[in-house]
Computed example of a mutant assay.
Amino acid sequence: MQVPKASDAAKARFTSVVPDDPRVVVKPMFGNLGAFVNGNMFAGLFGDRIGVRVLDESARAELAAVDGAGPFGPDERPMGGYVAVPVAWDDEPDRIAEQVSRAFEEVAAMPPKAPKTRRPPRTRS
């Protein structure tokens, strides 16, 4: 599976629509970006597409029904619970920011993600 890399313009667009909140952490993921709150991702960039996590199924279906919206992530294995905002909205950052903010609020209400426990290294005999 080839993971598309985000352009500098897409990265700038993404960071401009992420809420300015001290709980938000934006970090690189496979050449793209992800926005997290309490360890849970609420928005991401895959190639030049911005995707948001929508917890409510009816709201997810409503956003997915907008012309140009669609699955988020690789075609072979899109991320469940996420919707890619319509490409036509690339020139409407306020519409994207509204969806990203909604995703942030929903995901911020979730319990914090438990940190992964690391297994001790194996010793060779």
Score class of each variant (00 low, 15 high):
residue 113 K to S: 08
residue 100 V to L: 10
residue 52 V to A: 09
residue 98 E to G: 11
residue 45 L to Q: 01
residue 88 A to D: 10
residue 40 N to Y: 09
residue 92 E to W: 06
residue 7 S to N: 06
residue 122 R to H: 13
residue 57 E to T: 12
residue 30 F to E: 10
residue 63 L to P: 00
residue 122 R to V: 14
residue 44 G to R: 02
residue 100 V to T: 02
residue 84 A to E: 05
residue 51 G to R: 09
residue 32 N to R: 09
residue 34 G to E: 10
residue 57 E to S: 13
residue 94 D to V: 03
residue 95 R to S: 04
residue 5 K to P: 00
residue 7 S to W: 08
residue 96 I to P: 01
residue 96 I to Q: 00
residue 7 S to A: 08
residue 93 P to R: 04
residue 54 V to Y: 02
residue 81 G to K: 05
residue 69 A to R: 03
residue 28 P to W: 14
residue 57 E to I: 15
residue 39 G to V: 07
residue 54 V to N: 01
residue 38 N to K: 15
residue 35 A to T: 10
residue 117 T to Q: 15
residue 95 R to Q: 10
residue 60 R to V: 03
residue 94 D to Y: 04
residue 90 D to L: 12
residue 18 V to H: 01
residue 84 A to M: 06
residue 83 V to A: 02
residue 70 G to L: 06
residue 1 M to W: 04
residue 77 R to D: 02
residue 42 F to V: 09
residue 86 P to W: 13
residue 118 R to F: 15
residue 3 V to L: 15
residue 109 A to V: 07
residue 18 V to G: 04
residue 72 F to I: 10
residue 34 G to H: 05
residue 40 N to K: 14
residue 55 L to G: 00
residue 64 A to I: 00
residue 59 A to L: 13
residue 71 P to E: 10
residue 92 E to A: 11
residue 53 R to T: 04
residue 123 T to A: 07
residue 113 K to G: 02
residue 121 P to R: 10
residue 17 V to Q: 02
residue 120 P to M: 13
residue 16 S to G: 05
residue 124 R to S: 12
residue 83 V to W: 06
residue 9 A to K: 11
residue 115 P to V: 11
residue 60 R to T: 01
residue 27 K to M: 13
residue 115 P to D: 08
residue 100 V to Q: 05
residue 74 P to H: 14
residue 36 F to E: 01
residue 123 T to H: 01
residue 87 V to H: 07
residue 48 D to R: 04
residue 76 E to W: 12
residue 103 A to L: 06
residue 108 A to R: 15
residue 85 V to M: 11
residue 78 P to D: 03
residue 108 A to N: 13
residue 38 N to P: 00
residue 69 A to M: 06
residue 11 K to P: 00
residue 89 W to V: 05
residue 95 R to C: 06
residue 77 R to S: 03
residue 67 D to S: 14
residue 65 A to P: 05
residue 90 D to H: 14
residue 80 G to N: 11
residue 67 D to A: 15
residue 56 D to W: 08
residue 99 Q to K: 08
residue 79 M to Y: 04
residue 62 E to P: 00
residue 123 T to E: 06
residue 34 G to S: 12
residue 80 G to P: 01
residue 123 T to P: 00
residue 107 V to P: 01
residue 14 F to D: 02
residue 19 P to C: 10
residue 65 A to F: 11
residue 76 E to L: 15
residue 17 V to F: 07
residue 55 L to A: 05
